[in-house]
Every structure is written in C-alpha cells, then in structure tokens.
Write a protein that binds this DNA or RNA. Structure first.
Lengths: 226, 226
DNA sequence: CGCTTTTTTGACACATTTCAACACTCGTGG
DNA sequence: CCACGAGTGTTGAAATGTGTCAAAAAAGCG
C-alpha cells in the first residue's frame, strides 16, 4: 500500500459523486480537506472485521469486496463496490470497528475520508447528516435485496436477475460486459464459482450467450420468467 | 385495524426507548405530538412492498414480520420486530415507498410516527438526524448479520447461533423462552419450519432440550463449536 | 508460443425443501 | 370429564439444489 495526494481529477470525481454532489461546495471541500488516497494491489486487505477503522473509503478506481469470515475460514460476500462508491461508513457509528473485511478485488485506489472528522461534521451539519442517511439507506436496501434474493431465488434465477438489472428498460435484446471477474460475481451472488458457471449454461437455453466477460441477451422476456 | 390515542404509559415506553432516549425531551415530545397508535389482529398487513407508507412504526406490543414476496408467492423474511423496536424508517428516504411487506405476527399495537414530519425534523435538527443514523446503522448491521449467517452456516448452526445470542455471557447452562412461535423463528432464520424442527433435534445431542417454547441448554461449549 | 490463472464440466456428497402423514396442544362445548 | 377440532409442531421419504473435488478446457499475459 502506498499513500498519495488526491489529484485534481480525483477531487473532481469525488465532488461529482452522489454523496458529495448533494452537499454545498464549501462543505464538500471541508470534508475533502486533508483527505488522502492510497493504492493497493489485488488481494490486499483494507481492514478486518472487528478491528478499528479510521476512514470511510471512496473507490477511485478498481474494486473492493466486503466479506465476513466463517469459523472454518470460508468467506461470505456482503457487497462489492466498484469505482465511484463509498463504503465503510457504518463503522463510524459502531465505535469505529468494522463489521466485515474489505479486500481489493483488483488493483485499487481509494480516497480515505477521515471518519472522526466526518462523524463530527455530521453531528453539526444537517446536510452532511442527510447525505449519510441516504447512503446508509441505500446500502441497507442493497443488503436487503441480497438477502431476499438468496432466500427466494435459485442460482440461475439470481444470475438472470443480475443480468436484467443491467438491461436498459425497453430493450428486448442487448449485451454488456461484466464489470469484474466471474469469480467475484459468484461471490456477490452467494454462489460457488462452479454454480455460476452452471447457471450461465442453463441460461443459454433462454437466449443468453457468454463469451469471456461479454454477456449477450437475445430475448429479455424469456429471462424475466426464468 | 382500530386507531387510538397514545396512553400515558405508551408515551413513557416510547420516551424510554433507544431512539427517543438520546433526544432532548422537547424534541422527543415534538415527534410524539400528533402520534397515534393502531391495533391489528394477527396476519393483518401494515404496509406492502412498493406501496406508499406515511408512518414510521414503533412496536408497543406484539410482533411484526418484515418480508418480501417472490414471484411464486413464497415469502422471505427480512426481519422480525418485537416490542420496543422501530421499523419502516428507510421508506422515509426512498420516496416514502416500502421496500418490503409488514405483517402482524401476533395481535399488535404500534405507534405511528408521521414520517414526513420526522423527515422534516431530521433535516433541521442534528439530534434527530443522529438518532436516525444510528437506527439505520443498527438495522443495516442486523441485515448483514443475517446475510452472512445464511451464507456461512447450516440450519443447525444458525439455530445454535440464535440460541447463543440469548445466553448471558459467562453461563455454561441456562434456559429461556422463545419470544415467538417456532413458525416465526423459522422464517427469521430463513428456514422451512420442518428444517427448524430437525435442527432442534440435531441439537439435542449437544445438550439442548426443547419443551414447547422453552429452550434449555446444558452445555454452552458444545453449542459453540457446533 | 508456453505458462499461469481462470473457467467449465463431470461425478458425487450433502443440506434443505417439499409433500404427506402423524402427534401434540389447547380451548370449546357436549 | 371427555371428545372434538383447529392450529401447531414433528417425522419420514423422495426430490431438488448447491457445494466439493478433480480434471479438462479456455483465456489472459509475458
């Protein structure tokens, strides 16, 4: 891990993101003041479950996997954060201890917002508090969605649902590129990699073609009722 | 469903709860001003997924089940809220639409806090915002725990974990009464009722006895490594 | 091109759901 | 007091879905 200054491009990206865009410019600048960035190699750990964390993280580039460890060493993914997303904010309000492990799933650059400062700002400034509330809501809903899908859908259905979530409304045929390795997708969907593979080949008979990371859908309807 | 005024006992219970206790008395009173209660029979629906909700709910007595529906009509429990807990707060920040269905799992009385008013207060008052942030964090963590357990533990392990979460630290043998029907517990743990039943009989060989709703644990150690 | 890493496939084991039948509990009314 | 019935919980057998392990195939990268 190396630490860097924020580039002016980084600042621009940050200020444009959903979290900062809703804040008055001066407030956003105040949060960013003193913020640094750090780079990490794939597989690096950013923080560990139950250990202290002093930052809230913003993904500038790369990918982060948030997961819990079982007693037997197995890993359960809680969420995956691509470029532009914020994570680790909940530790701020849980005595600065992480609820999960965070690992770079690709070469990674993150901005590190000082969590004590941010917490303090949130306590004084309703704009910041509001932004945090919306972030927490959003993350909470993501987790709920995940839990519900795990409990209601089979593996192929979860994969179909994931694919459909990338389909612009109204199109009945389209294609897109997976934003990360199948490995990671499997984890995010709560599947073993083999199960993901098999799910894709089930979906072939519903008009889904997979070539490398490129997914092609011929008939959206067929997927929807899978 | 019948609507009622809050009794003075209700007010006391509310003001003592985690959410309100952290607020200055005047602020808490301001929120409660105009708040009404409603009673519901078992199986009544309080709100439905994707439909508008105008309240945040506080359970005065009884039990609420929060769940999502699958296309095939199957239900997946997201959370269960006993007396003293608040739910439905996330809809406030998601265009006042529920992310799940809420159903009385027992005869129920809830206090109905007006969500628009509460949202407004949160936007002006950092104390209220802070209280909401902590609530959202807490609920988020609950859901995360649930997701992780689903993905890491088998049915008997989840049941063991549930039992242990009711064991006061330091005791190696104890007993307690299930706070709700086994049916509901099964749902909360993401199991079919039959699976819960079988899990209990597996645990018998680790010193767990079940008589009606009373659970008795002879050897905590044995449970922990199940 | 050759090497490493990732993905796919197959065979098998295991956990859980499903469906059906049975036991138990508890309150009601004969 | 017992009999009845509805609701609740348990048990068994079969079916299903997913994980695991090993091996082959494909993709990425120098």
């Amino acid at each position: 891990m190396k630490t860097l200054r924020l580039t002016s491009n980084d600042r621009a990206v940050l200020l444009d993101s959903r979290f900062f865009a809703r804040l008055p410019r001066a407030t956003a600048e105040a949060i960013l003041d003193g913020t640094i960035a750090s780079t990490h190699e794939e597989h690096d750990i950013l923080f560990r479950q139950d250990e202290p964390v002093d930052h809230v993280f913003f993904v500038l580039s790369g990918l982060v996997r948030l997961y819990r460890l079982g007693k037997d060493g197995r890993e359960a993914d809680i969420a995956v954060f691509p470029k532009g997303e914020i994570f680790g904010e909940n530790a701020m309000f849980l005595e600065h201890r992480a609820t999960a492990n965070a690992q770079a799933a690709e070469p990674l650059i993150v901005a590190r917002l000082e969590s004590r400062k941010l917490r303090q700002l949130a306590a004084e400034n309703t704009d910041v508090a509001q932004a945090l509330i919306e972030l927490l809501c959003h993350h909470g809903k993501m987790t709920e969605d995940c839990l519900a899908e795990d409990r209601l859908l089979t593996a192929p259905q979860r994969v179909a649902s994931y694919i459909l979530s990338h389909c612009p409304d109204g199109l009945s045929s389209f294609s897109f590129r997976l934003p990360f390795q199948k490995n990671v997708l499997a984890g995010k969907l709560g599947l073993a990699p083999e199960a993901l593979s098999r799910a894709f080949s089930m979906l072939r008979q519903s008009g889904v073609t997979v070539k490398g990371r490129v997914i092609e859908i011929r008939d959206r309807q067929a997927l929807e009722k899978f």
